[in-house]
Simulated scan of single mutants.
Amino acid sequence: MTDVYIVGIDMIPFGRYPTRTVPELGAEAAWLALDDAGLGIRDMQALYCGNLMEAHLMVGQRILREMGLTGVPVTNVANACATGATAFREGVIAVKSGLYDVVLAVGVEQMGRGLLGGSGRSDGFVEEGVLGSNTMPAMFAQIGVEHARKHGTTFEQFAKVAVKNHHHSTMNPKAMSQRETTLREVMEAEMISWPNTKLMCSINVDGAAAAVIASERAARRLGLLARSVRVRASEMTSGPYTAKEFAIPDFNEVTRNCARLAYEHAGIGPDALDLVELHDCFATAELVHYENLGLCQEGEAGRMIDAGETALGGRIPVNVSGGLLSKGHPLGATGIANLYEVATHLRGAAGERQVVGARMGLTHVVGGSFGRGSACVIHVLERV
C-alpha cells in the first residue's frame, strides 16, 4: 500500500451565508483546495462529500454541477459530527489501496440556530425528562459534571478552555468569532447547561472545507511532494458496549479506543505531537478529551488548563484555530477544517498563530446522540 498525502487543502471563512446554497459553499472550498494544489477538477478521479443536513440530496453530485460534471464516482457521507472526517478518511482509504491516485474530499454544512438534539428516537421513546435532556449542551454538560465528580474539576477550569480558544481565534481570519473574552465574562454569561455557559458552547455556522488527497507516486509526478503533508494514521471507531451506552453515548470510551489505534498505526505516542485540533463542541468536552487522547494523565486535565500547557506557546497547543467554540461548528465541514488547521501549521503557514517547528499533529472529531450510537475519527498528520 502507498503512503497518502494531502497535496492541497483549504476552507472558506466560517460564518453565515443565507443567500448561498450548500453546493455553492462546497464548490468554493473545493476550488480553493484545488488551487492550493495547482490542479483542476478534471485531475480528480473521485469525490467524497461529507454533509449531514442534506445527506439525502446528493450534495457531492450537486457540487460537481457547480464545478464541472466529469463523471467520476461520487460518495456522499453522513456520520454525525464526524461526517467531514469520515469523507476524508474514505478518500484516504481509496488512495492507499491503489484504487485511485488523486481524489477530492469536501465537507460542507449550512446550520440553523439554537440547540441541537431534543428529538425522539425512531422507536418512539423520548429520553427527555426520563434520562435527563438529550440536547447536545445537556449531554456534554453531563460529561463535565461526571469529570468534576471524579476529579474535582472546577467551573473556572472549564471556563478557562473558552477563554483560551477565544484568544486563539483572534489570530485566525477564517474563524466566525474573533474576539477576546475574560474569564469573568465567560463565567457570567447566560447558563445553557451547567457548567457550560453560552460562551462555552460551539457556534452553529455555515462553512465548507476541502482537501486533495494523493498517493506518493502522484505527488511526486505532480511535483507536490515537498509541500505536501503525510497522513500518518487515519482511524475510526464506533461506540463499544459500556454500562451507560444505551442511556448516553460514551464519548470518552469511543475516543480512547480510536486514539489507541491511531497512535499504534502511526507508530508514535502522544508525546510526539506538536499540536492538536480536537472536538471542543463544548468547553467540558475539550477538557475531558485531554485525558482521552493521552495528552495528560487521568484526572490531570484541570491542572493542564491551569498551567497553560494547551495554549499557543505551551507544551502541546490545542485548538489554535479557535476551535469549535470560536471558529464555529458546521457539522459536515468541521473534520476537514481541523485537518486544514493542522496541515497549515505543518507547512509553516499559520502566520501569527503558528506553532513553531510543528512536525506532527493530530485531529479528532466525535459525534453521536441518545440511542443512536457514536462515531470518532482521528487523523495523525506529519510534515514531509
Rank of each mutant, 00 (worst) to 15 (best):
M1C: 03
T2F: 00
V4D: 11
V4G: 12
I9D: 05
D10K: 09
M11T: 14
G15N: 13
T21V: 05
V22R: 03
V22M: 09
E24P: 02
W31V: 15
G38H: 05
D43Q: 11
Q45H: 03
Q45A: 12
A46Y: 00
C49V: 12
G50D: 07
N51R: 07
E54F: 07
A55P: 02
Q61F: 01
R62K: 15
M67T: 13
L69E: 15
T70F: 10
G71I: 09
V74M: 14
T75A: 15
V77A: 04
A87W: 10
S97V: 03
G98N: 11
V102P: 13
L104P: 10
L104F: 13
G107L: 08
M111V: 08
G112E: 05
R113F: 10
R113K: 07
G118D: 02
G120H: 04
G124N: 08
T135P: 04
F140I: 12
F140R: 12
A148G: 15
G152I: 11
E156I: 03
E156S: 09
F158K: 06
A162N: 08
V163K: 03
V163M: 09
K164C: 08
H166R: 14
M171I: 04
N172C: 13
M176Q: 14
R179L: 13
E180H: 10
T182D: 02
L183T: 07
M187T: 04
E190M: 06
S193K: 07
P195D: 13
N196T: 07
K198M: 10
N204I: 03
V205A: 13
A209S: 14
A211L: 06
E216L: 04
E216R: 09
R220S: 11
L225R: 10
L225W: 02
S238V: 15
T242H: 10
T242D: 10
K244G: 04
E245A: 15
P249A: 13
D250A: 08
D250Q: 05
N252C: 05
T255V: 14
N257E: 09
Y263V: 01
Y263L: 05
G269F: 06
D271F: 01
D274Y: 00
C281S: 11
A285K: 06
E286Y: 02
E286G: 06
Y290L: 03
N292E: 12
L293Y: 08
E298Y: 01
G299Q: 00
A311D: 09
R315P: 02
P317Q: 06
S321E: 12
S321I: 11
L331W: 00
L331A: 05
L331G: 00
L339F: 00
L339K: 00
Y340E: 14
H345I: 07
A349D: 11
V366S: 12
G367T: 05
G371R: 08
A375Y: 01
C376A: 15
I378H: 08
L381T: 03
